[in-house]
Design a protein around this nucleic acid. Structure first.
Lengths: 212, 212
DNA sequence: GGCCGACCTTGACGGGGGTCAAGGAAGACG
DNA sequence: CGTCTTCCTTGACCCCCGTCAAGGTCGGCC
């Protein structure tokens, strides 16, 4: 297994080696233990991050005590909180490590300067934001039209390989949160698909057995 | 009442007169009747738009027949579909005029060229996307945690003036869609607030009468 | 090994809100 | 003026899914 480098993040794929070196010099690295928080909602935004290893959950607090809607689960190698640097001074969400993780931190100031100087970087940035916008937009659609079983079906279709098994990158609890449902409802949904004979579940291993 | 110009859109506020002239020359204008569609989901993206007058509803179709989750209602003077130009080739949503409207169309090709040439415009673009991202993110939060009455309360708090009445810019049907509920549920919610004596409703006129 | 804590599963229950249906109310237009 | 359409309101019904509770399983750790 090769160790991935943060350059492979979609945000940077269009950059030249020289541009990457420039970013490399301004970036720092950090390790997180499981459950550790990288940043909190409302905290001043110091820059953005690239996840190299592990898994990060982005959540928002709410007026309902105990409720933490999950915006997304970030997997390697992806950047996150890029948009936070422009929407305002503070992070709009809380980032929690779901497992031991390693992130690269790109500080705000130097990066903004690089953006001004480099149209290609700015375009890459715009593109990355558009991808996020699509993801979140998709989530709004699914939350407001599909029921929980339909959302689960959509997720499975998108993630299950045609043959072979998928090992869940996160716990079912976290997956449930990502899909906007409780662990109980996820469990019931998986059982329904198993009873229909289209899915096989063994712990964290999911295997497709039929059309959908 | 003065006629607004499309330059007043948040996307353009940071631009110099020269930059605005450049955009002016590439843009075209168009009028829409009530119910008319500006563009359809999956249609190739020809550029983005600025709403000068009227109201535009952005919806997504879904696998559930008849269900059209509303992403947002755009009011003057705002731009929309900017992000569509980068996320892919096609529009990610359908735009429908809720009333007679006037829009300015900025074609994709020339605008992308302008972006490359002008770092300030690129930064303004990034900022505009970040604003959208925040709005949609907020919507995910509210859809997944608050119940319908709470979402209505939040909306009222954000839009009702401290004194005087608010005239709804769109029908209650459209407002309900925007809040992720049915017209029936919206109606019941408004009745509850009236019975509590904190709100006065006369047709499209809403008036605050107490602390929320 | 044995204990303890997460995570997962399954059952029972209740409520929020979507759906269906039946009128008002308010223009649009002949 | 009547008619039609669209929007809004209110009532009745019921289903999805969140909540609570009770195990079951699988670790980590002494």
């Amino acid at each position: 297994m090769t160790t991935p480098t943060w350059h492979q993040a979609p945000l940077f794929t269009t950059l030249s080696p020289a541009q990457r070196d420039r970013l490399e010099r301004m970036a720092g690295s950090r390790r997180l233990g499981a459950g550790e928080m990288l940043f909190l909602e409302e905290e001043p935004c110091t820059g953005f991050f690239v996840l190299v290893e592990g898994a990060i959950q982005l959540t928002r607090s709410s007026n309902v005590p105990g409720a933490h809607p999950t915006l997304a689960v970030v997997l390697p190698v992806n950047s996150f909180a890029e948009a936070a640097m422009f929407g305002g001074e503070a992070f709009p969400a809380t980032a929690t490590a779901l497992k031991p993780s390693r992130v690269v931190h790109v500080p705000k100031g130097p990066f903004l300067a690089a953006l001004r100087a480099d149209p290609d970087l700015a375009l890459a940035m715009i593109h990355a934001q558009a991808v996020w916008l699509r993801r979140i937009t998709q989530q709004v659609q699914e939350l407001s039209t599909s029921d929980s079983l339909e959302r689960l079906r959509t997720w499975l279709r998108a993630h299950l390989p045609e043959q072979g098994a998928l090992t869940l990158p996160v716990t079912k609890k976290a997956l449930a949160a990502q899909l906007g449902m409780t662990p109980e409802t996820l469990s019931r949904g998986l059982r329904i698909f198993q009873d229909q004979g289209v899915l096989e579940v063994q712990g964290m291993q999911l295997r497709k057995k039929g059309s959908l």
